[in-house]
Simulated assay, not measured.
Amino acid sequence: MSVLLFLLIGVLVLTVGGCVCVVWAARGGPPWVRAVATATLVAGRVVSKRGTKSNNGSSNQGSDGND
């Protein structure tokens, strides 16, 4: 198996684990779960904003609003 596959599986496991912690924290989990949930939400916002900035110029190409 390639290193890239292991890396992708690791990212998937961390993502699913973070989502589980967000749900558990919403239901009043222990402090470490709330910390992981906060880190997951912050990471999601950072990735979302980074994706928005990189797609900002190309997201509306070809659309002039005169459909």
Rank of each mutant, 00 (worst) to 15 (best):
G29T: 01
L4Y: 07
S54I: 14
G28M: 01
G28Q: 01
R27A: 13
L12S: 07
T15P: 00
N56V: 06
S59W: 11
C19V: 15
S2D: 12
S54W: 09
A25F: 02
V36S: 08
N66R: 15
N55I: 02
G51E: 10
R45S: 14
I9C: 12
M1I: 05
C21K: 03
V46P: 04
C19W: 09
P30L: 07
L5Y: 09
A43S: 09
L41G: 06
M1K: 03
V33K: 09
R34S: 15
A25T: 02
A35T: 07
R34Y: 10
S58E: 07
V47C: 10
R27H: 10
V11M: 08
W32G: 04
P31M: 06
L12F: 11
G51V: 04
L5W: 03
D64L: 04
C19K: 07
C21E: 03
A43P: 03
V22P: 01
K49E: 08
V36A: 10
T15I: 07
G18H: 01
T15S: 12
G28W: 00
A39H: 00
N55D: 11
M1P: 11
G18A: 03
K53T: 11
S48L: 14
K53A: 15
D64F: 03
N60Q: 11
V16Y: 06
L5C: 04
D67W: 04
G51N: 14
G44E: 07
L5V: 10
A26L: 13
R45E: 07
M1Q: 10
V46E: 08
G18Y: 00
T40W: 04
C21S: 12
V22Y: 00
G17L: 13
S59Q: 15
W24F: 13
Q61G: 05
V11S: 03
V42P: 06
T40G: 05
N55L: 13
S54F: 07
G51A: 10
T38Y: 06
V36K: 04
G62S: 06
A26S: 14
T15Q: 05
K53C: 09
W32D: 05
R45C: 14
C19P: 00
P30G: 06
T38L: 14
N56H: 15
F6K: 08
C19Y: 13
R34F: 10
L8C: 09
S54G: 01
L41E: 03
R34C: 15
N55S: 14
V33Q: 13
C19A: 15
G28N: 00
K53V: 13
G29P: 03
A25C: 12
A37N: 04
R34W: 09
L14S: 08
A37H: 03
V36C: 12
G10R: 00
V42G: 04
S58P: 01
N60D: 14
T40M: 05
N55T: 13
V23G: 01
L7K: 02
V42D: 02
S63G: 07
G62N: 04
I9R: 11
Q61K: 10
T52D: 15
L4K: 13
G51T: 09
S2C: 08
V3W: 10
